[in-house]
């Protein structure tokens, strides 16, 4: 059965107040076309769970975020995300800040319906001070050690971007890192996958080995074909990060007038208009 749908239909299926997980890592393989669709939609008051990059920044810029759950937010080649910084410094968003290993264990716990997973990561640090709801457990075995009991990062919806998918929702990564995307898919009540290219199921193994089939249709509610849909983040091997455009984004974000101009030029229409505007900008800057 086909699960193919549009990015705007994904955004329309969200309700304000939901918890939304976003795959990828920093400025790498982010489902930006789906994020842009959310920015165009009326949904608001979201709790966003993400190894954050411009997905978090853009949603903050559009006032969509009530709380962020994350171990970091970065653009990688540009260390700090300007919209996230502004949102934190103005007090616009609440933050649940975890260590990276804790964050991964929270995803594993949610993906496997566990009440918590124990880890030494976080002990002794201010992660426990700023998250007073976190509890520790003592090992029941001879070592008797204290461990952080990381609760499941359950989420209503997960959004991920993959290189290939079929209409059923099986999805494939062809780059060098799966990030946490399969864990997001299993942790969520429903998962939407955008992909660079839709292919027939029988063609999935033409471009990658069987272990590149990261996401199973049993965990997928909808599939969206969005060529260049991770733009401007990296989506190897199909496309590298658009560093020049990322610089434009980051520079624009530092000044209200320039940000308004950026929004008007690139984000005032639908995804096709965005891609057209990026293409025109690239030709002009040659």
């Amino acid at each position: 059965m086909s699960k193919v749908m549009t990015a705007d239909a994904v955004a329309a299926s969200l309700d304000s107040g939901m918890t939304v997980g976003i795959g990828g890592w920093g400025s790498r393989r982010k489902p930006m076309a789906l994020v842009r669709a959310i920015c165009r939609s009326p949904v608001t008051d979201l709790t966003v769970v993400s190894c954050g990059g411009p997905d978090v920044g853009l949603l903050c810029a559009y006032g969509k975020v009530r709380r962020l759950v994350a171990p970091f937010v970065t653009l990688d080649s540009i260390p700090l995300e300007p919209h996230f910084r502004a949102a934190r410094e103005s007090g616009a968003i609440a933050l649940t800040e975890y260590d990276e290993g804790m964050f991964m264990f929270g995803l594993y716990a949610a993906a496997h319906r566990l009440p918590f997973l124990p880890t030494p990561a976080g002990l002794g640090s201010d992660v426990l001070r700023v998250n007073p709801e976190l509890k520790t457990v003592r090992s029941p075995y001879a070592d008797g050690g204290e461990l952080v009991a990381v609760p499941p990062l359950t989420m209503d919806v997960a959004l991920i971007h993959m290189n290939r998918a079929d209409a059923r929702g099986n999805a494939q990564y062809l780059g060098p890192d799966p990030y946490m995307d399969d864990l997001f898919a299993k942790a969520a009540g429903r998962t939407y996958v955008s992909c660079e290219r839709l292919v027939d199921t029988g063609d999935l193994l033409k471009e990658g080995p069987v272990q590149s089939l990261l996401i199973s249709r049993m965990h997928v509610a909808g599939v969206v074909e969005t060529p260049n849909g991770a733009h401007f983040t990296a989506c190897e091997p199909d496309r590298g990060r658009d560093e020049a455009f990322q610089r434009l984004y980051a520079q624009s974000a530092r000044d209200p007038d320039r940000w308004r101009a950026f929004r008007d030029r690139f984000l005032s229409g639908d995804e096709a208009a965005y891609q057209d505007a990026v293409r025109t900008w690239r030709e002009e800057s040659r």
């Binding site: 994350a70 171990p71 937010v73 410094e89 990276e100 290993g101 990561a121 002990l123 640090s125 700023v130």
Partner: peptide, 26 residues
């Protein structure tokens, strides 16, 4: 590497704690 100033409302937001808590612990 998290932020400068009070965590609740930082003067300067930085990266976030990343993996530093777990890395340094073990």
């Amino acid at each position: 590497i998290s932020c400068i100033g009070a965590w609740e409302r930082p003067a300067r937001q930085l990266l976030g704690v990343r993996g530093a808590p777990g890395n340094t612990r073990v």
